[in-house]
Amino acid sequence: MLEVVGLSSGYGGPAVLKDVSLHVGAGEIVTVIGTNGAGKTTLLNTLAGLLRPLGGVVRLDGEPISGRPTEKIVRAGLSLVPEGRQVIAPLSVEENLRVGAYGRKGGGSADTLAAIYDRFPRLKERRRQPAGLLSGGEQQMLAIGRALMAGPRVLLLDEPSMGLAPLIVSEIFALLDELNKQGLTVLLVEQNARKALALAKRGYVLEGGRIVLEGPAEQLARSPAIVEAYLGASAEVAA
């Protein structure tokens, strides 16, 4: 469904992302893990059209979308939940969700809104409050809800676990699992390799802007290089 071939990208200087190829099948949930500065955000921002690729191609259902403006990519069915949540602080919770449907093709946004409120009663309770007043976990739920309002077929998430308590992280990952089971295709970028590999079916490892490893998630989770670099001592204790 999402196909990335030989993608490179950067910020005007030398390429940060170099020759990255990956694919996400329809209904799949795939993760890209990588440490600080590996290029995860650069990858997702390029896929979403916020950064113009230097080379390579991105296809959504066979249709090339790379180089298109972000709003067109959103209309084509790809939405990004950005790093650091980026809820629109001065807008109310409900306004955040409604503006999320701005780029929606076709109707159904009222149903999506109802479904989001059903799933997150906290958001419904606080729908008139400025989004900036929500807790970190609630803001992450709102950011995901806002992306869902566009009615995407592929959802990209940039480190949704960042800065959140373990319990909240588990809740978010449970939600992603649920959404995936309902048919949504998910590409999840994470530093929290353990949780990401537990959720995803397949994974890629990004290092210095290149894919250095890929495979089924449980295989990656057992690979010595990953255990050492990402799962650390706690993994050995667990094992």
Partner: peptide, 24 residues
């Protein structure tokens, strides 16, 4: 209005506006 919400979103962040499909 929808356009009003879009304008306020652009005021908050042009990139966030783009991500929700606003033609900035």
């Amino acid at each position: 209005t929808n356009v009003g919400r879009a304008i306020r979103t652009v005021a908050f962040s042009e990139n966030v506006a783009r991500l929700v499909g606003v033609p900035v």
